[in-house]
Design a protein around this nucleic acid. Structure first.
Ligand SMILES: [Mn+2]
Ligand SMILES: [Mn+2]
Ligand SMILES: [Zn+2]
Ligand SMILES: [Zn+2]
Lengths: 147, 147
DNA sequence: GGATTTCTTGACACTAGGTATCACTAAGCT
DNA sequence: AGCTTAGTGATACCTAGTGTCAAGAAATCC
């Protein structure tokens, strides 16, 4: 029975987090967390619906994604074509590097544009209180594959 | 008859631009350009559909918005709640300041994050070739109104 | 364990936003 | 005025998601 817990440390952490926050650990939620852990690094709601199969209702998949996103266990990625995808979230506010060739997503470390934005926006009289940034490009593997 | 042309210099410019590019200047396209000129600084497709009324079909509204966006006569704004809006576009690549209180949108001038992004992304092996940035905050008017 | 309480589920209907089809219309050209 | 082809719009369809609510099942309390 150790194989299950070693396969998905994030699942266990997420269950702890939800339990501590007063959410019930229902069968659908457990199944969704396991399904998410088995997905590639990001997934769309539709992909998750198909991955988890008829064991969990469609509405529950959307509800659970939203709840996990609000609890900061998942983060949103806006892909280049505008579709929304999700992935495990570590830290708080951060951005993503999205490979437009293979779809791979990396967290963008060390981005500090807040101060620049605040200064630029001040010229228009705006007080900045948030921003959304996605960065598109090509990952090392994809570039190597075509060189 | 001068009132029409003085009311909408952008409409005339847009018609010139489309004509020069080989697009036919149809009645629906003319009506849409006039309707867009009469909208507030940004609008959703649905708002435009209602503004133009039954004189133009729904599909044509979407098609025309897409065409104008591809031709760079309109630009897309992603509002804080995720809805897509459109507005007249001046330059090429630029960003927006969106007031989360009154909805006003300003173009963000002088934003130069490309080099920073390229440097940060290089740490992950990514070559950056594009990005999407929207900035949310509160405009001068809205701040004054609540002070 | 069993009863209770409250949260959660899932079927379903519904909405918003947008696209594919295709017969018909009308710009633009001569 | 006639021809050619781009453009239109009715319609059907689609994806992504939300609201409703009766029934089910966690957690809690005994
Ligand atoms: Mn992330
Ligand atoms: Mn703009
Ligand atoms: Zn790649
Ligand atoms: Zn404002």
């Amino acid at each position: 029975m150790s194989s299950q817990s070693t396969l998905a440390p994030r699942v266990h952490a997420a269950e702890q987090s939800l339990g501590a926050a007063g959410y019930r650990l229902t069968r659908p939620r457990r199944e969704l967390l396991r399904a998410i852990a088995a997905m590639p690094d990001h997934f769309t709601p539709d992909e998750l619906i198909h991955a988890v199969g008829p064991a969990v209702g469609r509405a529950t998949v959307f509800r659970t994604i939203r709840m996990l996103t609000e609890r900061d266990l998942l983060c949103r990625v806006r892909l280049e074509d505008g579709t929304l995808a999700y992935r495990w979230s570590g830290a708080g506010h951060h951005h993503h590097l999205v490979c437009v060739s293979c779809g791979r997503v990396d967290d963008l470390q060390g981005c500090d544009i807040d101060s620049d934005l605040a200064r630029l926006a001040a010229a228009s009289g705006f007080a900045v209180d948030g921003h959304w940034l996605e960065v598109y490009g090509r990952c090392a593997d994809c570039r190597a594959r075509e060189a």
